[in-house]
Simulated assay, not measured.
Amino acid sequence: MGQIKAVLCGYYGKGNGGDEALLASLLQMLPESVTPLVLSGNPAQTRKRYTVQSGDRMSALRVLKAMRHSDVFIWGGGSLIQDATSARSPLYYSGLMGLAQQLGLKTIAWAQGVGPLKRPLTRWLARQSFTSCTAVSVRDQGSAAILGNWQIPFTLAPDPVWALDSLPVKGLWDLPAPRVAVTLRSHSSLTPIRLGNLTRALVDFQKATGTCILLVPFQASQDLRIAESISSQLTGPHQIFLLEDPRELKGLFRGVEMAIGMRYHSLIMAAAQECRCFALSYDPKVSNLMSELNLPGWDLAQLPDDPNIISQTWLEHYVNGNPLTGDQVQSLVDRALMHQELLREFVSKLI
């Protein structure tokens, strides 16, 4: 077949560091025989950042044209097929998958995090979409269980971001050490009272440890306001890092002793750089990651009301907690590359 043209579809170009990390991982893992076109919320930015072709994800004409000139549709990765927030996400992505299949493209559901699916319609759409895929890979046991119940073949491997290359961050090493990174996001479970308690706990934690606090918004539209609110209360050294390149986001954690995170991919990036991690879960995917990696943390709904308990718990983990070992990280990286192997095997059958 020669050079293969592939449309890449995900929550790309929307300013979310985790989804950008998935795109960067996918582009890193694509065989050289594949020419990608990325459907993006910001095509110009995507073209510039990754030097790839890109089109507007919301332009029906652009999407249709891209599919008609392509051989493969890659649907990945992350929590695209879930209706916890609304039914729009699974309807959009299932609709694109259905269109690609009607046009005769080979389809891959890649590194998926499936669910929650609470509505009968979205469950039915998801099952139909995955059933018709040529190949499927998932990133967690919960997703594997759903597809297993639907009797859909799949490959299970850790999130591809474990294997994402990292880049150094300018100015990071000029900041005083030790450093602790904090990644909070806007969510209904992070109420003003809980944010206030976390902020007071962080102020006390910093005074006790003398650490430099790095506030890391993964999605500026949701996270920056929270980072600025915390920054205004801290009395010790601190800095807000707004990083657009996901490889730099991952590289940031190389210079960090401990990470306190809500963001799923912030915890993966930090653990991959052998940081101590403390999770604040707002979503089943974070809770599942805590279980799989044996990470300490709280579900935000069960966050202690006393800031002193929070800060003392963080202090205990900072002093006595253990990061993943190098061997553990390498094992996760090696298994994450199974997503790359799936792509290679798929493409080899087309050439």
Rank of each mutant, 00 (worst) to 15 (best):
Q222P: 12
Q102D: 12
N294Y: 03
D19V: 04
L184Y: 05
Y318M: 02
V161H: 04
Q206K: 03
N197M: 12
S291V: 10
T313W: 09
E341W: 07
M67L: 15
S266F: 11
G78L: 02
L332Y: 13
I260K: 09
L96R: 08
G196D: 11
A177Y: 03
F218A: 11
E292A: 13
Y318E: 06
N197G: 06
A201T: 06
L249C: 12
T131P: 04
S189C: 11
A111Q: 02
K48Q: 14
E257A: 06
C212D: 09
H238T: 00
R200V: 14
Y264K: 05
P246H: 04
M262A: 05
L234W: 14
M262R: 12
T235A: 10
Q112E: 13
E292M: 08
C9Y: 03
I152Y: 00
Y93V: 02
D19T: 10
F73R: 00
L117G: 13
L117S: 05
R276C: 07
L61P: 02
S311E: 01
R276T: 03
W110Y: 09
R123F: 14
H317A: 04
S70D: 01
H339G: 10
L242H: 07
P36V: 00
Y264P: 05
C212Q: 12
G297K: 01
Q273G: 06
I146V: 13
S70T: 00
V333A: 08
L224I: 08
N322Q: 13
T191K: 10
N149M: 02
E341L: 09
Q222H: 15
S166E: 07
H187A: 12
D204A: 14
S232K: 07
F346E: 01
T122D: 11
Y12P: 05
E20H: 00
L167G: 03
G326W: 00
S132Y: 08
P246D: 08
C275I: 13
T134M: 04
